[in-house]
Design a protein around this nucleic acid. Sequence first.
DNA 1: ATCACCTGTTTAGCCTGAAC
DNA 2: GTTCAGGCTAAACAGGTGAT
Length: 354
Amino acid sequence: MTDLTNSFLHRKNILNNNAAVQEIYKQIGFLGVKFDGKYRFTKQQLAYFFEVDVRTIDRLLEDNKDELAASGYEVFTGVRLRLLKDLYTSIVTIDDEDDINVGLINHDADNEIIGSKASSAGVFTYKGFLNVGMLLNSDKAKSLRSAILDIVIDVLNTKLGGNAKYINQREEEFLPSAIREYNYRQEFTNALDFYITDNKFKYSQLTDKIYKSIFKEAAKEYRQILKLSSSESVRSTMYSEVLDLIASYENGFADFLRKKSEKAERKLSLSEAHLIFSDFEEMTEAIYKPSKEKARSIMASRDMAFRDALHEKLKEYVREVSSDDFNKFLGEKSISLEERLLENKDVFLRLKDR
DNA sequence: ATCACCTGTTTAGCCTGAAC
DNA sequence: GTTCAGGCTAAACAGGTGAT
């Protein structure tokens, strides 16, 4: 069970998920005033919402300064504070009382939202508000947490139609990468045909070598972790960055193998090919290191956030998923492969006519 | 009118102690 | 043991005041 209060990663993965944050804003209904394009809440408003003392929010700020600053907490001073104060007073005076959100009402005369003489004020954004809710322990915060989790799960389900297996296909880059990789895969299998003596295991064994070199798992392990059935293709679940790297490996190794075979002036045995792969791996280690690390981190982090799958061997590579990534896979631009193919139909038709 | 200083308010940070 | 409340102080700051 995810415990938000003690998992920085899980908190980040929710706060970076813009689609979910928007949905939470709609459903929770704790409305703030818009300032600089973001909804803002003062410390007092948060304390009131969570039914804790203002000092408790202060403590939280002390202990989690960096995290909350990253979620949009700021101390307003000078001109910006002046503008914010004006905004609050104009809202409170203009709006009909019934329309004013409970968070905005001056519920206690001694405890204004921002004291008129305040020279600085701690201000949260909506993300900051949610972040506080994930760290506090008040009953209000607990119920907010469970609501947040419900909504996040709901958003994932609606966006993905309950199937996260092919979420990798929802970004723009997937299709071109898959097509490129398909072509290099052919180079690779052709090379295996030409330069390695007949052996029915050669494709799968050398493919596994590539997988293991890149993300430490053989196809079988990968299949288990993502709970793929035997009829489902492993590659159709891979992220574009991983596919690109596999394509590099396949193309590079195909060429390397050709040279070795031509030099020896004969076909090579599968066991020789395994040794040659080790040479290839050693030779390219420094070149591939950065892309390999990126691919591992992408795979481990995204699969954790989107597929709830843990790659045990890539544990140390799990990071937070960036908000860019959430947009890529769940945002406006993300669409299923079917839709993407329809969208690109013209391109394919043109290619076909050639 | 301008400058330096004073005053009141708020936050940050540290500590203690009560309640669960 | 953990969580929350409250006391305290230093520092930051806006707005006042009063001397020049």
